[in-house]
Design a binder for these strands. Structure first.
Lengths: 346, 346
DNA sequence: ACCATATTCAAAAACGTTTTTGGAAAACGG
DNA sequence: CCGTTTTCCAAAAACGTTTTTGAATATGGT
């Protein structure tokens, strides 16, 4: 009967106003060569009709999406939730303030990430890309650099020749270790986050440098790389204890590892804190409530996110950079950073 | 000097293969009217050249984005992290299995949500929409229904005449209350999640029905609506205690409220559990670690997400539905559901 | 050997905007 | 009053695909 419900197009606005399509477009996009009165009319009619420009058509022609994509990696989706979400909140805030939309895609595996990047960049789905879990030598970074596509990462590469924001994990490692040393510990283990990520290496260096600065050599047997499933913090603690390498304190690369380590300690009849000092990192919500309270580092993720977003906006607006920002974490003292127990058997 | 770096287009693939643009397109999109040998060649050349169809162009022409948008509301971004992320994981999994991409946008306020919906739907940025925090009378739902745009929500409206998945909060409310009654409590308070959300009403009905089923009338003074900042669980507990309405047990609409309530109890010298029984909902990670352990309900969010995704796929493929699924939550018994102090267990 | 049908491909139209280009009318300067 | 600039708008091209339409060739049945 009626027409087959055609999409409402710019043409309809043009007809309704008696203007040309091009004028309507220019009016709606804020060009200066349209009379104020005309612009008003166009806006009124567009509003009344409920017209919005087709995203596909406008981005095809203008080659702009006004969209920034944040690619979130699997580990984030499962475990470090708070980290990721608060970060995103900051990003979104700073992007939307400048008229950009934030869009988030999830990557299940590292290989998938590459595919997602290609899809986003080569298919032109966004103007800029954000992601984390940066590696010392990161293919994603190199690929994007080679193509000159705008991106900012959370975390650095070894070369560090692109734009990034990062938490200063070197300083975290150094401070955590130094605190434990000041408490009288000399056998301090480090349960490391996966070394494939650059920040793990930074933390390790901080840890080692602190030891060295206090005349303590680092012992490979005390440095154990931990994962989320294959080898957890608990596995590492078990290994440390059964091998009898005798640490009295542990610095964990993140709270998930620390939490897991605490579980294992209890199984061995050790109280986290009094019997084995412990410092984590991230300040996950549970940290405050577990046992004596886990001493850890808090990061201002909101600020991190905002900077990330602002950097991207700057890049998109032609500010070549370089944009690189290091953020400090704050040590949150709770119950597990205790002095070395006097009567412990070595 | 060289050409100004034109975008790699389908035309390039056509030239390289000696075929027409249309054949290349059909080959790449898996149409049957192209010879296998031809398809192979096209695929090889496309791969070698690194060609991907422009998203804007293809979605303009085909009127499909193969993208589903999940709109996440502000409260989720800040507080109920685990809920939201695991859900999304399930959604993403089921969507990508059917060739759809999941894209997430964040809404800061309820008003913003409407704007986001209009942007997504009217500008044609996605083929389907997902969102939660559904209200008894939800403008978003009505707007989308009026336009016949595919969407599925987490949570129902009062009319419940659209497609949704939902956790059975009525049953949660009933079970929680019944459990507390069985433990000898008769003065049971209910700290409600905001009643603007439908699920809060369901929980309330479950709570009241359980009371009634056991011959206990509900007392408005024991039913307090809680929010994330304005009136927290702690405020509600303070109110209950200072007004002397004398509850011996509390059922909280979610764990954040329960956690906050526990804080207040301690300030009044009350031990959550022994002095005041408590049951929450959601099973946030902290729940297991706080005090005696918070008794609460766990929801299979992964399953919820997968169903959500699959429903959307079904709708997009023409399955008219209706699609409506109610999911059960599981009661996780921990330390705060204790018998009434000095009372007798049934 | 002939007609009907199936297979495979190409040309051209279409999608709905934005950008480019140009031109008429209005304003301005002398 | 004339030439020049400015203001404002319209026509048409362009963006890069997919879809429609049509046609050539190959295949099959009798």
């Amino acid at each position: 009967m009626g027409e087959p419900a055609r999409r409402l197009g710019i043409r309809d606005v043009a007809e309704q106003t008696g203007l040309s399509v091009s004028t309507v477009s220019r009016a709606l996009n804020g060009y200066s060569d349209v009379k104020l009165e005309t612009r008003r009319k166009v806006e009124a009619v567009a509003e009344q009709l409920g017209y919005r420009a087709s995203f596909a058509a406008s981005s095809l022609r203008s080659k702009q999406t006004n969209t920034v994509t944040f690619m979130v990696s699997k580990p984030w989706t499962k475990f470090v939730d708070p980290f990721f979400l608060i970060l995103l909140d900051g990003v979104e805030l700073s992007l939307q303030a400048r008229g950009y939309a934030l869009q988030i895609v999830m990557a299940r595996e590292y290989e998938t990430e590459f595919e997602i990047i290609r899809n986003s960049v080569e298919r032109g789905r966004c103007d800029g890309l954000l992601f984390g879990r940066t590696r010392p030598e990161d293919e994603r970074v190199e690929w994007l650099q080679a193509r000159g596509f705008p991106f900012v990462t959370v975390g650095r590469t070894d070369k560090s020749d692109h734009d990034w924001v990062d938490v200063d994990h070197y300083k975290i490692g150094y401070q955590a270790t130094e605190r434990l040393i000041r408490l009288g510990h000399t056998r301090i283990a480090h349960l490391m986050t996966p070394l494939r990520y650059t920040y793990s290496k930074h933390a390790l260096h901080g840890y080692r440098d602190a030891l060295e600065a206090h005349g303590i050599g680092h012992d490979p047997a005390l440095e154990i790389e931990c994962y989320l499933s294959r080898k957890t913090g608990a596995d590492a603690v078990t290994e440390l204890i059964t091998r009898g390498v005798g640490p009295t304190a542990i610095f964990c690369g993140n709270d998930v590892i620390a939490l897991s380590a605490m579980e294992a300690m209890r199984q061995f009849g050790l109280r986290p804190g009094p019997d084995m000092a412990l410092i984590g990192c991230d300040d996950v919500p549970v940290a405050a409530h577990v046992g004596l309270g886990l001493t850890t580092f808090r990061q201002d993720l909101d600020a991190l996110g905002m900077r990330l977003g602002r950097m991207m906006v700057a890049k998109l607006n032609g500010d070549a950079g370089p944009h690189q920002q290091l953020i400090d974490a704050e040590l949150i003292l709770r119950g597990t950073d205790l002095p070395r127990a006097g009567g412990r058997v070595e």
